[in-house]
Write a protein that binds this DNA or RNA. Structure first.
Lengths: 137, 137
DNA sequence: CCTCTAAGTGTTATATTATTACATACGTGA
DNA sequence: TCACGTATGTAATAATATAACACTTAGAGG
């Protein structure tokens, strides 16, 4: 354990603010709003919106979370860092959001994109649905 | 032509506020922000944000315009009222937005959706691209 | 013609979401 | 040790959107 700093670990380590925001999103699993995150993390030392937005921006950039544009919310990425390509279903009745893991859908979109000669850097797909439990009731 | 009022003609006529907002979006062709619309239409008698948002909401509902969620902007629908199914490309460099008219893409998405047993009521697809002129320069 | 109703209007105030600006700290590599 | 990139903390403010309430209008239908 003598020479512990062979090369920088910085790149894979998050700062404190980034960490606590990521943890909250991870534990929640649901989309959360910036100001809700702020309120939730007051006790951890977060005091201003900017601290939250900066952490969120960084986490989005790292592909660890996604922003769901139509509801101004942020959610943990459950596709092991899909690097800003997002596809979600949002229930119109109960608001529940799910990240679409279905490879066929996302691959299909990629194919469509290729076929149509679109040079995409990233995309954001939001499908409004009626979720199973809402469909039943 | 004696009984001219067989059924209401109301449905196809817009109110004054809806009309002037739609006209502005039509003439512009670009995505516009709500408060820009407000400023632009002060002289036409629009005084408050709510007047703009109400008109925008109605026009979105009618499928005459779309909201582009990731830039909080509204744009005329050039697919003859696609009823809230939207697909756009947004240039990451210059910000130019285009509604995707390509039937293959939108049909393809519909197919994917069917194949994946998603019961979609509507969708919002935002593809970030590098547009032709930006690619050259 | 009269009245009921749904939809729209106008206005004030306020809520929600996000950024600017600026001074400071901290770690890494030269 | 210094410079640089990145993050931090804080206050102020900008940008986006909605709530609440009183009032008007247009068309349906008697």
């Amino acid at each position: 354990m003598s020479s512990t700093h062979t090369h920088s670990k910085k790149s894979q380590s998050l700062t404190k603010n980034q960490r606590i925001v990521l943890d909250l999103l991870q534990n929640s699993g649901e989309p959360l709003k910036a100001y809700f995150i702020l309120d939730s993390l007051k006790k951890e030392g977060l005091n201003s919106p900017l601290q939250v937005y900066r952490a969120l921006d960084k986490l989005v950039e790292l592909g660890k979370i996604h922003k769901i544009e139509s509801i101004n919310s942020f959610i943990i990425c459950n596709n092991s860092n899909c690097a800003s390509n997002t596809a979600f279903t949002i229930c119109e009745r109960c608001g529940k959001v799910k990240e679409i893991k279905n490879k066929y859908l996302t691959d299909g979109v990629s194919d469509l994109v290729k076929d149509n000669k679109l040079e995409i850097t990233r995309y954001n797909l939001e499908f409004y649905v009626l979720c199973k439990s809402c469909k039943i009731n």
